Every structure is written in structure tokens, then in C-alpha cells.
Amino acid sequence: MPLRVFIRKPAEADCQELLSLHHRSKEFHFPWAFPPLNEQECKNYIDRCQNEDFEGLMICHSNSNKIIGVANLSQIFYRAFQNAYLGYYVDVNFSGQGLMSEGVRLAIDYAFYTLGLHRVEANIQPENTASIHLVERLGFTKEGFSRRYLKINGEWRDHERWALTVEDWVRTFQNA
């Protein structure tokens, strides 16, 4: 079955489309994610995507080329660690269609096969069951619970720590 999405790096020309997605989906993302909501924040995000330790990936619909979500690989470490933290969010208009599973799967392929990483972590608030189900479907393993782990919207929030290694990835999807 052909993929319904593809990934690409963002460009400054994507700002207005991203801002529309963010504003349209603001309530849907609350309290899990707080993407840029103004032009300067969006430009800062796209500039950050040029850093060695951060990869922003637009998840785009194959038919329309429209951005339907974002996957970010942050705090990318090489050498003995070869790890990154994965974050993602979907346009509210495309939620529940399996498109993010496809897009995040492409982002993980990119992390392992293009960036050469060994491990990807996703830290997810325990109440964010949709996000937890997504990483479970992709073969992540729950490794622990981090109390008051990240400050989000002014509050320190608990998170579950989920991780995936390249060996697990190959085993899970070698026949897919």
C-alpha cells in the first residue's frame, strides 16, 4: 500500500501554513503541545531546524502536499549516545486517520537510517493516551516515569519515558 504522507524539512515559506495549522489545532493540542503561534516564533522554529542538534520534519499529505503534522527530533547526540528526543503533533483536521503513524514512522526511519542514531525517546504526559497508543503501535517500550519532568504551559508535568532502538525497529518492521 503506498504511503499517504511524506516528510521534508521546513522552509521559511511554510510559516503561514504552519501558523494556520497551529491556530486551527490550538485547543486540540492543549495541554500536550504549544507550537509557535506568531510569525517570529515560527521563523525561530525554522531557524532552529538548521542546528546540528535539531531536525524538524514536516509531515505532508502525498496527494495535496499540504502539511498535516510535524515531527521533531531534538537534543540529537552522536558519539557513544546516538540518541534524540521525538516530539510530534497533527493538524486537528487530520487526526484519527492513521496519517501521523505513517509520518512518525518515516521520521523514525530518518532518525535511524539518515542520521545514524541508535535510539529515539518520546516523553509523553500519561493522560495523552492518543500519543501513547501511537508509540506503542510503532514498537516503543515504556522505560519509566519521570515526575515533574518538563515545564509545559507554566507547570511542571509528569511524563512517561518511551524508547525505541534501531535493533527493535528492524525487528518490528523487517517484514513490513
Rank of each mutant, 00 (worst) to 15 (best):
E41D: 11
A107D: 01
A71L: 00
K43E: 13
A84R: 02
C15H: 11
S101I: 06
L164Y: 08
Q82C: 14
R161C: 09
S74R: 10
E167H: 11
V166D: 11
F145M: 00
Q16L: 10
H22F: 07
H23D: 08
T129L: 11
K9L: 09
H133M: 04
N65E: 15
E167P: 10
S20Q: 13
D158K: 02
S20R: 15
S25F: 02
V170S: 15
D47T: 12
R147W: 04
N72K: 01
R79T: 12
W169F: 14
V120S: 02
I152W: 03
Y110S: 01
R161Q: 12
N153Q: 11
E17N: 12
N153V: 12
V170G: 08
R147I: 09
L57M: 06
I7D: 00
F112L: 10
I67Q: 05
I124F: 04
S25M: 00
A71V: 00
M58D: 05
N175M: 08
E121Q: 12
R48G: 05
I76M: 03
R161N: 13
N83K: 10
Q75C: 11
E27W: 11
H159K: 06
S146M: 14
Y89R: 03
F30W: 14
R119Q: 07
C60N: 05
N44S: 12
L150F: 12
F28C: 07
Q16E: 15
A107Y: 05
Y88F: 06
L99C: 02
Y85S: 14
Q75G: 12
E41N: 06
T172R: 12
F112W: 05
F94Q: 02
F6P: 01
P126I: 08
A11P: 07
I7P: 00
I76E: 00
N93H: 06
S101T: 09
G98P: 14
Y88L: 01
S101W: 02
Q174N: 14
C60F: 04
E12N: 15
R79Y: 14
L73I: 04
D91M: 03
E167R: 14
Y45L: 14
G116R: 03
Q40A: 09
S64Y: 09
T172S: 15
E160N: 05
Q16D: 13
R161T: 14
I7W: 01
M100I: 00
L86D: 01
A176V: 13
A13K: 11
H133R: 10
E136L: 06
F140N: 02
N175Q: 11
C42D: 04
N175H: 13
V104S: 00
G139L: 03
F81N: 07
